[in-house]
């Protein structure tokens, strides 16, 4: 199962290195990782998609919490969440296929952000499934370049993220 974990961390040199080093060393299966500024100056926000069972994601969260530069960690997997990814897709286009591609993009509310004699660059935003669908449809035309940001996530509603850090780990009863 895929889990979405959001972590807030100090925006300092080497912090991303600490996080990625932790994932590598503990052999966690990270699907995507995206990081950028948060609402607080000096604090970055990272969204990680982790593949594994509850026990694995608990480990990831608690190991992240041990990093001194990481201030808060949330598992938003089981909460109502807005999840988005952005992709830039450069696809081969000829005079014959250009309109078709533009129509496909339209259906997905994607935008054409660059046009050349031989290609189109499409920008799409949405949940991964939507991005995957469009990529699947464009593949037959020949994708020349693809850049995806990975998932960013935000819990719906409320007033900002909870002040409570993630709870202490729960024992998985009867699971031995």
């Amino acid at each position: 199962m895929k889990h979405t974990v959001v972590a807030l961390m100090e925006d300092k040199p080497g912090v991303l290195n600490r996080v990625s080093g932790l994932f590598r060393r503990r052999n966690y299966n990270i699907e995507s990782l995206s990081v950028g500024h948060s609402e607080t100056p000096g604090i970055s926000r990272m969204t990680v998609v982790v593949e594994g069972d509850e026990r694995v994601v608990d480990q990831v969260i608690h190991q992240l919490e041990k990093l001194i530069n990481v201030t808060q960690v949330f598992n938003v997997t089981h909460q109502p969440t807005v999840i988005r990814e952005l992709a830039l897709i450069k696809v081969k286009a000829t005079a014959g296929t250009r309109t078709e591609i533009m129509e496909l993009a339209n259906v997905f509310r994607a935008r054409i952000v660059d046009v050349s004699a031989t290609s189109l660059t499409v920008e799409i935003t949405g949940p991964e499934e939507k991005v995957n669908s469009l990529i699947g449809l464009l593949r037959p035309y020949g994708i020349e370049e693809l850049a995806r940001t990975g998932r960013v996530a935000m819990v719906r509603g409320g007033n900002g993220h909870s002040d409570e850090p993630d709870d202490a780990p729960q024992a998985t009863s009867e699971s031995k």
Partner: peptide
């Protein structure tokens, strides 16, 4: 807390 359920599930 990271030691909980790391090696042995409790």
């Amino acid at each position: 807390s990271a030691e909980i359920n790391k090696n042995v599930v409790v």
